[in-house]
Simulated scan of single mutants.
Amino acid sequence: MRSQLLLALALSFVVPAFAQSPPTTNPHPVTITVPSAAPKDVESIDAIIAALYDVISGPAGQARDWNRMRSLFIPGARMMPAGVRAGGEVGMRLLEVNDYIAMSGELLVKKGFSEHELARRTEQFGHIAHVFSTYEGRMATEPTVLRGINSIQLLNDGKRWWVVSVFWEAEHGDLKLPQHYLPGKADTAAKASP
């Protein structure tokens, strides 16, 4: 069942047309917009990370606010679960937000799922940030606790923070979280401005 859960949580996104467009430097941009974000969700790194965990969490039967989730991600953002396949080789999946919602959304609502941050390491320079966020998650209907690292890239466009990508791997087999990514060791931040 744990492998089914990990597989389900590692699934897909496609951003629909809505209201808010982030900046682009592409000379031939594709116009993709996302729902407007609640200002409190995107005003700081702390706020957007908290919103990211909050939006997928809830008891069994509780609908998730998928437009809120979409509003956190820049158009074209990626969600990339990594792990060991059945044959022993390491791989990853490259998903968009709507892919993840389509593949995991029903399971999260049906079984109930809660995920929260245990510890964090943040690096920031100017308008970009990289957050190594140690997480713990569990299905309401199962005793298994899932822990791992979310590697989150963020952009501040001068108005708000955007999630650019989430790349994660859960503990498995002999791969366990090292002490320096656990509470009391990982809560550090380094910042530099241009």
Score class of each variant (00 low, 15 high):
His28Arg: 14
Ala17Phe: 08
Ala60Tyr: 10
Ala8Asp: 12
Phe13Val: 14
Val14Glu: 08
Ala19Val: 01
Gly58Arg: 00
Ala37Cys: 15
Ile45Gln: 07
Ala47Leu: 09
Asp41Ile: 11
Leu5Met: 13
Ser57Asp: 06
Lys40Ala: 13
Ser12Tyr: 08
Pro23His: 07
Val14Ala: 12
Pro29Glu: 10
Ala37Thr: 12
Val55Lys: 02
Gln20Ser: 14
Ile45Pro: 03
Ile49Arg: 01
Asp46Val: 01
Pro35Lys: 10
Val55Arg: 03
Ser12Glu: 08
Pro35Arg: 10
Ile45Met: 07
Ala17Lys: 02
Ser44Met: 04
Leu9Val: 02
Gln20Tyr: 15
Lys40Tyr: 00
Val34His: 07
Leu52Ser: 06
Pro29Thr: 11
Pro16Cys: 02
Pro39Thr: 08
Ile32Thr: 15
Phe13Gly: 11
Arg2Asp: 10
Arg2Ala: 09
Gln4Ser: 11
Leu52Ala: 11
Pro39Ser: 13
Gly61Ile: 05
Val42His: 00
Leu6Glu: 10
Ala37Ile: 09
Ile48Gly: 04
Gly61Asn: 13
Pro23Glu: 12
Thr25Leu: 08
Ala60Asn: 05
Gln20Phe: 11
Pro22Cys: 11
Ala51Asp: 05
Ala51Trp: 00
Pro23Asp: 13
Ser3His: 11
Phe18Ala: 15
Leu5His: 04
Ala63Lys: 14
Ile32Tyr: 03
Ala10Met: 09
Leu7Glu: 06
Leu52Lys: 04
Ala63Ile: 07
Thr25Ile: 09
Gln4His: 10
Gln20Lys: 07
Val15Met: 06
Pro27Ile: 04
Ile32Phe: 06
Ile32Gln: 15
Met1Cys: 02
Ala8Thr: 15
Ala8Tyr: 12
Ala10Trp: 05
Leu7Tyr: 01
Pro35Glu: 09
Phe13Trp: 09
Leu6Ser: 13
Met1Ser: 14
Thr31Tyr: 13
Ala17Trp: 03
Val55Ile: 13
Glu43Val: 15
Lys40Asp: 04
Asp41Val: 02
Glu43Ser: 15
Pro22Glu: 09
Val14Cys: 05
Ser12Lys: 04
Gly58Ile: 01
Gln62Trp: 00
Asp41Tyr: 01
Ala19Thr: 05
Leu11Ser: 13
Gln62Asn: 06
Gly61Ser: 01
Pro59Cys: 08
Thr31Gln: 15
Ile56Asp: 00
Ser44Lys: 02
Gly58Asp: 06
Ala60Met: 04
Gln62Ser: 14
Val55Cys: 08
Asn26Met: 11
Pro35Gln: 11
Ala51Asn: 00
Phe13Arg: 12
Thr31Asn: 13
Pro29Gln: 05
Thr31Met: 10
Pro22Arg: 05
Val30Met: 09
Ile45Glu: 08
Phe18Leu: 11
Lys40Gln: 12
Ala17Ile: 11
Asp46Ala: 10
Thr24Phe: 08
Gln62Ala: 15
Asp46Ser: 02
His28Met: 05
Val14Pro: 00
Ala60Glu: 02
Asp54Tyr: 03
Phe13Asn: 03
Thr31Ser: 14
Pro29Ser: 10
Ile49Asn: 00
Ala17Pro: 01
Phe18Ser: 15
Ile56Phe: 07
Pro16Leu: 07
Val34Glu: 01
Pro23Lys: 03
Pro35Val: 12
Ser44Trp: 00
Val14Leu: 07
Leu11Val: 09
Ser21Ile: 09
Pro39Phe: 03
Ala17Thr: 05
Val42Thr: 12
Ala37Trp: 07
Leu9Gln: 04
Ile49Gln: 00
Gln20Gly: 01
Pro16Gln: 13
